[in-house]
């Protein structure tokens, strides 16, 4: 219990113009834990995820990842914005997987995996290729290294996207509705990869509509609605015995 949380978000606020999206979200994720964020669309869960690696700036509150304040440096009782280089260094330790995969279509699968390690991580080309092949094997796509993303199915693309994020050897993985854009029969293969990643001890924050995955893999399920955390706890409690009427209403709809 004395370990530093991997993620600590405290009273995070964020609005787009005058529209508030996050209205005081607090959350802790311990190392090795899998946290699933569920909730209706527009509840702010994806925005919150994007705040965790500073793709979005927050208006109030604070976010620490691995004990380090994201996006700012504190000195003399004031916050100073970090330079791009420092933000990027923080971000490189956090892997992210998107709903629409967003693989780089002009690069082969293997090149997608070696780009960031060589360009950002200073890894040699040979080492990056070795690492890339190891990761492709891990997601079951070793033979497709020379294919272009457009030649793969959606499920295969998302597995490549997971491998691409892992290539930077992150200590935290963020998943933004990783199976929402997939045909139903392709969801399973992606969830399998995520499940084995969780089993290997990766800290994960997953925005998802897959209640089965949340129930089975998550250590904590967080239900968000209207920009706040309505209810959180172990999956058996939140999904099996929800206390809040809004949670019950949502779960009744997705079932």
């Amino acid at each position: 219990m004395t370990t530093i949380p991997m993620v600590r978000a405290n009273d995070v606020h964020k609005s787009y113009g005058v529209v508030p999206v996050l209205r005081g979200v607090s959350l802790e994720v311990r190392p090795g834990e899998v946290t699933c964020l569920i909730g209706p669309s527009g509840s702010g869960k994806s925005t919150f995820l994007r705040c965790l690696n500073h793709l979005e700036q927050i208006d109030a509150g604070r976010i620490e990842v691995g004990g380090r304040l994201m996006g700012y440096r504190e000195s003399g009782g004031r916050l100073h914005e970090l330079r791009e280089r420092e933000v990027l260094r923080q971000r490189a330790g956090i892997g992210m997987v998107f709903q629409h995969f967003d693989l780089f279509p002009h690069l082969t699968v293997l090149e997608n995996l070696t780009l960031a390690p060589t360009v950002v991580g200073g890894v040699s080309r040979e080492d990056a290729v070795l690492r890339g092949k190891r990761l492709l094997e891990r997601v079951g796509l070793l033979q497709r290294g020379n294919a272009y993303p457009s030649q793969l199915s959606g499920g295969q693309q998302q597995r490549v996207a997971i491998a691409r994020a892992l290539a930077m050897e992150p200590s935290l993985m963020l998943f933004d509705e990783p199976t929402s854009a997939l045909d139903p029969e392709l969801v399973g293969e992606v969830l399998d990869v995520m499940r084995s990643l969780a089993d290997s001890g990766m800290t994960m924050v997953v925005v998802t509509h897959e209640m089965g995955f949340a129930r089975e893999v998550a250590d904590t399920v967080v239900f968000m609605d209207g920009g706040v955390v309505v209810e959180s706890g172990p999956p058996a409690q939140v999904l099996g015995d929800p206390q809040h009427p809004r949670t019950r209403a949502f779960l009744a709809q997705v079932r």
Partner: peptide, 9 residues
């Protein structure tokens, strides 16, 4: 966004 998340400037 994907490039930024990977740490590319």
């Amino acid at each position: 966004q994907a490039a930024a998340a990977l740490g590319l400037s």
